[in-house]
């Protein structure tokens, strides 16, 4: 079985010389829930963004399903990106639009270009959008503008949007950082249920180890852009956690 997400030696050096990601390789099978841990600045966001090419990796390759995301151009790139659903810490919703409209735009890659441009969604799109909003428990808020929702509700709309995209892989970059612990659990379990029920791999950046232990099948650790830990969630030892969160040792010179 081919892995649903496969990263090969992904590397990202920012224009200012910062190494965001240093030679990371990773394979995630379908339906697996992966939590990514790391200090602030370890490269967690960069990893997810490079994998879906919201940020251009400097080198390396990224596959979602059998499609290579790196190397795609133009429309192909848009199509490749459409395979990865993305949930952002700041929700990134269209605040003046209703919940339904926000979820409908997720159907953009399933429609022709012009339909997507002018928002001429099909009845099927509407059906899917409503179902996804129902799945996150927001059927009652369908026609409410997003800006008048609470933070937790907004993040659920964002989750519904990612679902409605019908992605091959699901990435979430600290989806719980601006939510209280109860809501955080709700959102994480929604992501997990979605992944396991549809066989979609889910990669989530979290900063609470407790959550990682509770929901993840597998935990990976990043430090200074490098993969420093990879193992089943049940086997995550306190020492491993300490290692992941330890201050990175000054890196050896490149040409040793």
């Amino acid at each position: 079985m081919t892995a649903a997400v496969r990263l090969e030696s992904l590397r990202k050096v920012f224009p200012d010389g910062t190494v965001g990601l240093d030679d990371v390789s990773l394979e995630v099978p379908a339906g697996q829930f992966v939590a990514i841990l790391g200090r602030s600045g370890a490269g967690k966001s960069t990893l997810l963004r490079c994998a879906s090419r919201l940020v251009e990796p400097t080198s390396g390759r990224s596959f979602i399903g059998d499609l290579e995301v790196t190397g795609a151009r133009g429309r192909g790139l848009a199509r490749a990106r459409a395979r990865a659903g993305f949930v952002f810490q700041q929700f990134n919703l269209i605040r003046s639009y209703t919940c339904l409209e926000n979820v409908l735009v997720a159907r953009i890659s399933h429609n022709g270009w012009l339909r997507g441009l002018i928002g001429l969604w099909t009845p099927r799109d509407h059906e899917i959008a409503r179902r996804c909003l129902d799945e996150v428990g927001l059927s009652a808020k369908i026609d409410t503008p997003v800006r008048s929702l609470s933070g937790g509700q907004q993040q659920r709309v964002a989750v519904a949007r990612a679902f409605a995209q019908e992605p091959t892989a699901l990435f979430a970059d600290e989806p719980t950082a601006s939510l209280d612990p109860n809501l955080a659990s709700t959102v994480l379990s929604m992501l997990k249920d979605y992944g396991s029920s549809r066989g979609v791999p889910v990669l989530v950046n979290v900063h609470t180890i407790e959550h990682a232990r509770r929901y993840a099948d597998r935990i990976i650790g990043l430090s200074a852009g490098r993969l420093v830990h990879d193992g089943p969630a049940s086997e995550l030892s306190d020492e491993a956690v300490e290692a992941i969160y330890a201050a990175p040792q000054s890196r050896p010179p490149e040409d040793h």
Binding site: L54, A80, F88, F91, N92, L93, V105, I108, W113, Q165
Partner: peptide, 15 residues
Amino acid sequence: GPVEAMRSLGATRLQ
């Protein structure tokens, strides 16, 4: 934010 979200949804530049 919304720009990045739209890109992740597979929208083209005009979209």
